[in-house]
Nucleic acid binder design. Structure first.
Lengths: 219, 219
DNA sequence: CGCGATATTGACAACGCTCAACTCACGTGG
DNA sequence: CCACGTGAGTTGAGCGTTGTCAATATCGCG
């Protein structure tokens, strides 16, 4: 996000923000709260979770080090559309809305970058819209694991491990399914040697096979 | 989109673009084409349709008069992520990418507005992500009809009519279903007096009942 | 060591997709 | 003006995927 900024600008940005630690489980902001702050993660993982009308939840995305979150709502003067919750002990830097606006005025690059990032997310989401409907749960899970792998994968002797704890429930809320079905599906993948999953940990043993499953049904 | 611009700026914007008529069925741009143009609809309706990996299609949104389309891809130097197709005879104004950039430089308001519009779409899409999974087809259809009604509704003696032709297939592609299920569901809604649908036309007779269905399952 | 969070597994039902046949409206051309 | 073809819509039968309900197992933290 801040890569390529002049060191001068970078100093101003860091100086204007506040750094704070987030114990695992901490809620950074809550859905419905007025969006009066922008955030960037320095270390750890934060998940963005939206409560649905039917009482369920949807995990919209996981934030990794270097990513911004909460800024779109803040800059549009809207309430936060989702909760942000640290899933491991983390460190973030955050800014008040006036500070954020001022930084953008003084360093237009920041505004451009955040616009570009929002545009990218818009295109990504449009792509996901289609995937979420009509496809089988196994396909959606495969796709989700691939994305997590690329974003938060860590090579180990067993394969590529997703480097933060993720529950069956989380996966269900990302794929629009239930933890029961996810459990069954993962058990099947484990059995076939594609993945290895233990409590809150998932290792992808055979990325090729997973990619195969993710594109199932493509012509 | 352009409301609130100075008349001077407005003249510059209109002068720099080209106006053209779109016969019903015309494809304005195609998924995968380099995004080298920005568009705004003056009259009619255009639908944005994305081809999915499994061979199916997703209708992402319908564009009405005054709305911009194709601009996010263009400004990010990316290929268009979807097709744009006129569903009735329409009129649009469009700009080349260099022209668009220059207009934004000369009238920063335009850039701000399009960023705001993109942010709004981002929030909308996030909301839709949750809806699309787990909810029953009837619920998704009800929600979709409500949105169409608000956006393109025209009061008639029968109720609120969606003012452009829309097929069961379109509705299926918007809700991630099949035309068969949509046909059955709509027949059910018609029977209960909630809607009245004929070939390519839909009238909402009882918006309250529709809203009720859309929130089915809420706590 | 005990409890809560997490995960597994089975039985069952149902929603909605697939396949298939048929009807209806509309526009085109002979 | 009517025959015909095409696109749009309807309806039925069957079944698979997946959600629901329920019971049990296991891991870890306090």
């Amino acid at each position: 996000m801040f890569a390529g900024l002049s060191s001068e600008a970078l100093e101003a940005v860091v100086g204007a923000g506040s750094v704070r630690k987030l114990a695992s489980g901490t809620r950074v902001f809550a859905q419905g709260d007025p969006g009066v702050s922008g955030h960037s993660l320095l270390e750890g993982r934060v998940k963005i979770v939206q409560a649905r009308a039917d009482g369920g939840q949807s995990v919209l995305r996981f934030i990794g080090p270097g990513e911004m979150y909460g800024t779109v709502a803040a800059l549009m003067n809207q309430p936060f559309p989702a909760d942000a919750i640290a899933v491991v002990d983390s460190v973030e830097i955050w800014w008040t809305l006036p500070t954020l606006r001022q930084l953008m005025r003084q360093h237009p690059d920041i505004g451009l970058r955040s616009t570009a990032a929002a545009g990218q997310r818009l295109l990504d989401l449009q792509g996901r819209i289609g995937e979420l409907t009509g496809e089988r749960v196994e396909t959606r899970i495969a796709r989700t694991l691939l994305r997590l792998m690329e974003k938060a994968g860590r090579r180990t002797s067993e394969g590529v491990e997703i480097d933060f704890p993720i529950t069956r429930q989380d996966l269900a809320e990302m794929t629009g399914s239930t933890l029961h079905t996810v459990s069954r599906t993962l058990a099947g993948l484990d059995h076939r040697g594609v993945t290895g999953s233990t409590r809150r940990r998932i290792v992808v043993r055979d990325p090729r096979a997973l990619a195969q499953l993710a594109e199932q049904g493509a012509d």
